[in-house]
């Protein structure tokens, strides 16, 4: 079981690097979506016995993260007529290097954390830290609203992955509440992105500089 899980988490960590290194927005969105699907499948693998509730939550997660949110973002991209990040604050090669260093550092840091024996041999904690770090780099280093949303979602993916450590103890209600909030949040972000596009005729967040001291 651990091998399959580690394989999937490794794949998610690779997708982090793909999101960091790509200049085309659709591929960043795709990396984020595939990562969401990969991570959404994990609970079914961790839970050895088939459980309706867990499968249902996994299915909803996959549908929301893999299909609903990417469709929303693609629509926003089409209406804004952009598909490429130009002049990011942190270039592609530096962010890729940052991502690689971050991934190695998170594997090293996870060894130092006191983990339960059954978690110490999985990639859950390093994978989570790497995704959170990647999300931060995208949030800070990119200027297009869509890339920042992707960064936010990749960070959420990392936190979700960390939450899997508690899968046997957090009640179902809490997980579904978190998923619901996340979904609503992204829809609201989508609406605001759309309004910003109309108000500023651009999704370049560098134009959002009227408000400062």
């Amino acid at each position: 079981m651990n091998e399959t899980m580690n394989l999937l988490i490794g794949l998610a960590m690779g997708l982090n690097l793909m999101a960091l290194g790509s200049s085309r927005l659709p591929s960043v969105v795709r990396a984020m979506a595939v990562q969401g699907v990969v991570l959404g499948c994990l609970p079914v693998i961790i839970e050895r016995n088939f459980d309706w509730l867990v499968s249902f939550v996994a299915l909803v997660t996959v549908l929301v993260k893999g299909f609903a949110i990417p469709t929303l973002l693609q629509r926003a991209m089409r209406s804004a007529n952009i598909d490429r990040e130009i002049e990011p604050f942190i270039g592609y090669v530096p962010s890729l290097l940052l991502g690689a260093v971050g991934t190695i550092a998170s594997v090293a840091a996870a060894r130092m954390l006191p983990l339960l024996p059954e978690h110490a041999e999985t990639l859950i904690v390093p994978g989570a830290m790497a995704s959170i770090f990647t999300g931060f780099v995208l949030l800070v280093g990119r200027v297009k609203a869509i890339s920042q949303v992707c960064g936010y979602l990749i960070m959420e993916n990392g936190i979700y992955l960390f939450g899997l450590l508690l899968i046997h103890s957090t009640p179902f209600l809490v997980e579904s509440g978190i998923l619901l909030d996340l979904t609503v949040g992204v829809f609201i972000i989508g609406i605001i992105v759309d309004r910003i596009q109309r108000a500023f005729d651009s999704l370049d967040t560098r134009k959002l500089t009227t408000l400062r001291e």
Binding site: Y152, I159, F162, L166, G185, I188, R195
Partner: peptide, 26 residues
């Protein structure tokens, strides 16, 4: 437009903060 700019910053900063508190809860 100023209100949308403010909302965007609120969402991104507030969203990141709230995400970190979820991680902290875990």
């Amino acid at each position: 437009p100023r209100a949308f700019e403010a909302t965007w910053k609120y969402l991104l900063i507030g969203g990141t903060g709230i995400a970190l508190s979820l991680l902290g809860s875990f």
